[in-house]
Protein backbone atom coordinates (compact mmCIF):
# COMPACT_ATOMS: atom_id res chain seq x y z
CA UNK A 1 0.00 0.00 0.00
CA UNK A 2 1.30 3.42 -0.95
CA UNK A 3 -0.04 6.07 1.42
CA UNK A 4 0.82 9.80 1.61
CA UNK A 5 2.32 9.52 5.10
CA UNK A 6 4.18 6.38 4.07
CA UNK A 7 5.58 8.23 1.09
CA UNK A 8 6.59 11.22 3.23
CA UNK A 9 8.37 8.88 5.62
CA UNK A 10 10.09 7.19 2.70
CA UNK A 11 11.32 10.58 1.47
CA UNK A 12 12.65 11.49 4.91
CA UNK A 13 14.50 8.19 5.33
CA UNK A 14 15.77 8.64 1.79
CA UNK A 15 17.23 12.02 2.75
CA UNK A 16 18.92 10.40 5.76
CA UNK A 17 20.44 7.63 3.62
CA UNK A 18 21.38 10.25 1.06
CA UNK A 19 23.45 12.06 3.72
CA UNK A 20 25.82 9.09 4.06
CA UNK A 21 26.16 8.85 0.30
CA UNK A 22 26.84 12.61 0.14
CA UNK A 23 29.85 12.15 2.38
CA UNK A 24 31.16 9.30 0.26
CA UNK A 25 30.49 11.16 -2.98
CA UNK A 26 32.06 14.37 -1.67
CA UNK A 27 35.28 12.45 -1.00
CA UNK A 28 35.28 10.98 -4.49
CA UNK A 29 34.42 14.37 -5.94
CA UNK A 30 37.20 16.26 -4.12
CA UNK A 31 39.77 13.71 -5.27
CA UNK A 32 38.48 13.93 -8.82
CA UNK A 33 38.30 17.71 -8.78
CA UNK A 34 41.89 18.21 -7.65
CA UNK A 35 43.70 15.17 -9.05
CA UNK A 36 41.48 14.31 -12.06
CA UNK A 37 41.57 10.77 -10.72
CA UNK A 38 38.71 8.37 -10.07
CA UNK A 39 39.42 5.91 -7.31
CA UNK A 40 37.18 2.92 -7.97
CA UNK A 41 38.25 1.46 -4.63
CA UNK A 42 36.50 4.32 -2.80
CA UNK A 43 33.69 2.05 -1.60
CA UNK A 44 36.27 -0.31 -0.13
CA UNK A 45 37.62 2.61 1.91
CA UNK A 46 34.08 3.05 3.25
CA UNK A 47 34.02 -0.64 4.18
CA UNK A 48 37.41 -0.39 5.94
CA UNK A 49 36.16 2.72 7.77
CA UNK A 50 33.12 0.81 8.99
CA UNK A 51 35.31 -2.01 10.30
CA UNK A 52 37.76 0.37 11.99
CA UNK A 53 34.90 2.10 13.78
CA UNK A 54 33.46 -1.30 14.67
CA UNK A 55 36.77 -2.44 16.15
CA UNK A 56 37.20 0.84 18.04
CA UNK A 57 33.76 0.53 19.58
CA UNK A 58 34.15 -3.17 20.48
CA UNK A 59 37.81 -3.36 21.56
CA UNK A 60 38.27 0.11 23.06
CA UNK A 61 34.68 0.39 24.19
CA UNK A 62 34.42 3.74 22.44
CA UNK A 63 31.06 5.46 21.89
CA UNK A 64 29.89 4.64 18.35
CA UNK A 65 29.82 8.31 17.37
CA UNK A 66 33.32 8.95 18.72
CA UNK A 67 34.59 5.96 16.75
CA UNK A 68 33.85 7.98 13.60
CA UNK A 69 37.02 9.94 14.38
CA UNK A 70 39.02 6.70 14.60
CA UNK A 71 37.62 5.62 11.23
CA UNK A 72 38.45 8.99 9.65
CA UNK A 73 42.01 8.96 10.97
CA UNK A 74 42.67 5.34 10.10
CA UNK A 75 41.31 5.54 6.58
CA UNK A 76 43.14 8.84 5.99
CA UNK A 77 46.39 7.06 6.88
CA UNK A 78 45.55 4.24 4.47
CA UNK A 79 44.78 6.92 1.89
CA UNK A 80 48.23 8.47 2.38
CA UNK A 81 49.87 5.12 1.69
CA UNK A 82 47.65 4.36 -1.28
CA UNK A 83 48.35 7.70 -2.93
CA UNK A 84 52.09 7.62 -2.26
CA UNK A 85 52.76 4.05 -3.36
CA UNK A 86 50.19 3.31 -6.05
CA UNK A 87 48.26 6.15 -7.66
CA UNK A 88 51.22 8.53 -7.75
CA UNK A 89 53.10 6.00 -9.88
CA UNK A 90 50.46 5.92 -12.61
CA UNK A 91 49.15 9.50 -12.44
CA UNK A 92 49.48 11.12 -15.84
CA UNK A 93 49.87 7.81 -17.70
CA UNK A 94 47.03 6.06 -19.52
CA UNK A 95 43.67 6.56 -17.78
CA UNK A 96 43.05 2.81 -17.93
CA UNK A 97 45.99 2.33 -15.54
CA UNK A 98 44.06 4.12 -12.80
CA UNK A 99 41.23 1.66 -13.26
CA UNK A 100 43.66 -1.27 -13.04
CA UNK A 101 45.28 0.11 -9.89
CA UNK A 102 41.85 0.60 -8.33
CA UNK A 103 40.96 -2.98 -9.15
CA UNK A 104 44.15 -4.24 -7.51
CA UNK A 105 43.28 -2.18 -4.43
CA UNK A 106 39.75 -3.61 -4.40
CA UNK A 107 41.16 -7.15 -4.30
CA UNK A 108 43.61 -6.21 -1.54
CA UNK A 109 41.16 -4.30 0.69
CA UNK A 110 38.32 -6.80 0.42
CA UNK A 111 40.48 -9.80 1.19
CA UNK A 112 42.44 -8.03 3.92
CA UNK A 113 39.08 -7.30 5.55
CA UNK A 114 38.08 -10.95 5.24
CA UNK A 115 41.36 -11.98 6.88
CA UNK A 116 41.11 -9.49 9.73
CA UNK A 117 37.40 -9.47 10.48
CA UNK A 118 35.99 -12.61 8.92
CA UNK A 119 33.48 -13.07 6.17
CA UNK A 120 30.36 -12.35 8.19
CA UNK A 121 28.09 -9.40 8.63
CA UNK A 122 28.68 -6.89 11.46
CA UNK A 123 27.04 -3.75 12.78
CA UNK A 124 28.24 -1.03 15.16
CA UNK A 125 26.20 -0.86 18.37
CA UNK A 126 24.73 2.61 18.70
CA UNK A 127 24.05 4.35 22.04
CA UNK A 128 20.86 5.81 20.57
CA UNK A 129 17.69 3.76 20.40
CA UNK A 130 14.18 4.15 19.15
CA UNK A 131 12.26 6.35 16.79
CA UNK A 132 11.24 9.97 16.84
CA UNK A 133 7.57 10.31 15.80
CA UNK A 134 6.11 13.50 14.43
CA UNK A 135 2.54 13.43 13.17
CA UNK A 136 2.52 9.90 11.79
CA UNK A 137 6.02 10.14 10.38
CA UNK A 138 8.82 8.54 12.34
CA UNK A 139 12.57 8.36 11.91
CA UNK A 140 15.26 6.76 14.01
CA UNK A 141 17.45 8.92 16.24
CA UNK A 142 20.49 7.35 14.61
CA UNK A 143 19.55 8.80 11.27
CA UNK A 144 18.93 12.23 12.74
CA UNK A 145 22.37 12.10 14.37
CA UNK A 146 23.88 10.97 11.07
CA UNK A 147 22.32 13.94 9.26
CA UNK A 148 23.72 16.32 11.89
CA UNK A 149 27.21 14.82 11.65
CA UNK A 150 27.21 14.97 7.87
CA UNK A 151 26.23 18.65 7.96
CA UNK A 152 29.03 19.42 10.46
CA UNK A 153 31.63 17.56 8.39
CA UNK A 154 30.53 19.19 5.14
CA UNK A 155 30.63 22.67 6.69
CA UNK A 156 34.15 22.06 7.95
CA UNK A 157 35.22 20.83 4.51
CA UNK A 158 33.79 23.95 2.90
CA UNK A 159 35.57 26.09 5.50
CA UNK A 160 38.81 24.21 4.76
CA UNK A 161 38.44 24.74 1.04
CA UNK A 162 37.48 28.43 1.22
CA UNK A 163 39.42 29.84 4.16
CA UNK A 164 42.68 27.96 4.58
CA UNK A 165 45.95 27.99 2.67
CA UNK A 166 45.85 24.32 1.78
CA UNK A 167 42.26 24.80 0.58
CA UNK A 168 43.41 27.62 -1.66
CA UNK A 169 46.22 25.42 -3.00
CA UNK A 170 43.71 22.64 -3.67
CA UNK A 171 41.38 24.96 -5.53
CA UNK A 172 44.27 26.35 -7.55
CA UNK A 173 45.48 22.84 -8.42
CA UNK A 174 42.00 21.81 -9.50
CA UNK A 175 41.87 24.74 -11.91
CA UNK A 176 45.33 24.54 -13.42
CA UNK A 177 47.91 22.23 -11.92
CA UNK A 178 50.95 23.38 -13.94
CA UNK A 179 50.31 27.07 -13.25
CA UNK A 180 49.93 26.21 -9.57
CA UNK A 181 53.31 24.51 -9.66
CA UNK A 182 54.81 27.63 -11.21
CA UNK A 183 53.44 29.66 -8.27
CA UNK A 184 55.71 27.61 -6.02
CA UNK A 185 53.16 25.17 -4.68
CA UNK A 186 54.27 21.60 -4.17
CA UNK A 187 51.41 19.83 -5.90
CA UNK A 188 52.58 16.41 -4.77
CA UNK A 189 51.81 17.57 -1.22
CA UNK A 190 48.46 18.93 -2.39
CA UNK A 191 47.67 15.61 -4.05
CA UNK A 192 48.54 13.48 -1.04
CA UNK A 193 46.58 15.78 1.28
CA UNK A 194 43.60 15.72 -1.07
CA UNK A 195 43.62 11.96 -1.32
CA UNK A 196 43.86 11.55 2.45
CA UNK A 197 41.01 14.03 2.90
CA UNK A 198 38.82 12.19 0.41
CA UNK A 199 39.69 8.90 2.11
CA UNK A 200 38.83 10.38 5.54
CA UNK A 201 35.40 11.34 4.20
CA UNK A 202 34.92 7.78 2.98
CA UNK A 203 35.98 6.56 6.44
CA UNK A 204 33.43 8.82 8.16
CA UNK A 205 30.76 7.65 5.71
CA UNK A 206 31.75 4.08 6.55
CA UNK A 207 31.38 4.59 10.29
CA UNK A 208 27.93 6.16 9.82
CA UNK A 209 26.96 3.39 7.42
CA UNK A 210 28.07 0.81 9.99
CA UNK A 211 25.91 2.41 12.68
CA UNK A 212 22.80 2.38 10.49
CA UNK A 213 23.22 -0.72 8.28
CA UNK A 214 24.90 -4.10 8.71
CA UNK A 215 28.03 -4.48 6.58
CA UNK A 216 30.43 -7.15 5.37
CA UNK A 217 33.76 -7.19 3.45
CA UNK A 218 31.91 -7.58 0.14
CA UNK A 219 30.01 -4.32 0.71
CA UNK A 220 32.40 -2.12 -1.26
CA UNK A 221 31.47 -2.26 -4.93
CA UNK A 222 27.91 -1.01 -4.55
CA UNK A 223 28.68 2.18 -2.57
CA UNK A 224 31.35 3.11 -5.14
CA UNK A 225 28.79 2.97 -7.90
CA UNK A 226 26.26 4.87 -5.84
CA UNK A 227 28.83 7.58 -5.13
CA UNK A 228 29.70 7.63 -8.80
CA UNK A 229 26.03 7.96 -9.77
CA UNK A 230 25.73 10.85 -7.32
CA UNK A 231 28.68 12.83 -8.64
CA UNK A 232 27.42 12.23 -12.16
CA UNK A 233 24.00 13.52 -11.13
CA UNK A 234 25.46 16.55 -9.41
CA UNK A 235 28.33 17.29 -11.77
CA UNK A 236 31.91 16.15 -11.28
CA UNK A 237 34.21 17.91 -8.87
CA UNK A 238 31.67 20.10 -7.08
CA UNK A 239 30.66 19.66 -3.43
CA UNK A 240 27.27 21.42 -3.72
CA UNK A 241 26.64 19.12 -6.69
CA UNK A 242 27.43 16.12 -4.52
CA UNK A 243 24.96 17.36 -1.89
CA UNK A 244 22.13 17.82 -4.39
CA UNK A 245 22.99 14.56 -6.16
CA UNK A 246 23.20 12.67 -2.88
CA UNK A 247 19.81 13.88 -1.67
CA UNK A 248 18.18 13.14 -5.03
CA UNK A 249 19.79 9.73 -5.09
CA UNK A 250 18.86 8.82 -1.51
CA UNK A 251 15.24 9.78 -2.21
CA UNK A 252 15.17 7.92 -5.54
CA UNK A 253 16.62 4.79 -3.99
CA UNK A 254 14.29 4.73 -1.02
CA UNK A 255 11.24 5.52 -3.14
CA UNK A 256 12.15 2.75 -5.59
CA UNK A 257 12.37 0.36 -2.65
CA UNK A 258 8.99 1.53 -1.35
CA UNK A 259 7.12 1.53 -4.66
CA UNK A 260 8.82 -1.25 -6.68
CA UNK A 261 10.44 -3.31 -3.94
CA UNK A 262 12.81 -6.22 -4.35
CA UNK A 263 16.23 -5.67 -5.81
CA UNK A 264 15.27 -2.46 -7.62
CA UNK A 265 16.74 -0.03 -5.05
CA UNK A 266 20.23 -1.19 -6.04
CA UNK A 267 19.50 -1.26 -9.75
CA UNK A 268 18.15 2.30 -9.64
CA UNK A 269 21.71 3.63 -9.23
CA UNK A 270 22.69 2.14 -12.56
CA UNK A 271 19.51 3.16 -14.32
CA UNK A 272 20.09 6.75 -13.16
CA UNK A 273 23.77 6.55 -14.07
CA UNK A 274 23.14 5.27 -17.57
CA UNK A 275 20.22 7.60 -18.30
CA UNK A 276 22.09 10.70 -17.11
CA UNK A 277 25.30 9.78 -18.91
CA UNK A 278 23.55 9.04 -22.15
CA UNK A 279 21.47 12.21 -22.14
CA UNK A 280 24.00 14.63 -20.66
CA UNK A 281 27.46 13.13 -20.10
CA UNK A 282 28.61 16.00 -17.89
CA UNK A 283 25.85 15.54 -15.32
CA UNK A 284 22.61 17.40 -14.70
CA UNK A 285 24.24 20.32 -12.95
CA UNK A 286 27.65 19.93 -14.51
CA UNK A 287 29.14 22.48 -16.85
CA UNK A 288 31.43 21.45 -19.65
CA UNK A 289 33.22 18.17 -19.08
CA UNK A 290 36.93 17.64 -19.56
Amino acid sequence: MITPSGLAETLLWGVANGCIYILLAAGLSIIFGVMKLVNFAHGQLLMIGAYLAFTASVVLGLNAYLSILVAMGGVALIGLGVERFTFRKVLGTDKLNEIFVSLGLIYIFENAAVLLWGNKSAQIASPLHGLLSLGGISISYDRIAAMGIVIVILLSIIFLMKKTKIGLAMRATSQKSDATQLMGINIEKVYIFTFALGAALAGAAGALYGIIFPFSPALGALPTIKAFAIIILGGLGSIPGAVVGGLLYGIAENTAGYVLGGIWPDAIAFVLLIVVLVIKPTGIFGGKGD
Binding site: V38, F40, K95, L96, E98, I99, I225, F228, I232, L273, I274, L277, P281, G289
Partner: peptide
Protein backbone atom coordinates in the same frame (compact mmCIF):
# COMPACT_ATOMS: atom_id res chain seq x y z
CA UNK B 1 35.53 8.67 -21.47
CA UNK B 2 37.42 5.96 -19.63
CA UNK B 3 35.88 6.12 -16.13
CA UNK B 4 32.34 6.71 -17.28
CA UNK B 5 32.52 3.84 -19.69
CA UNK B 6 33.90 1.61 -16.94
CA UNK B 7 31.08 2.60 -14.61
CA UNK B 8 28.32 2.24 -17.20
Amino acid sequence: KAWFLAMV
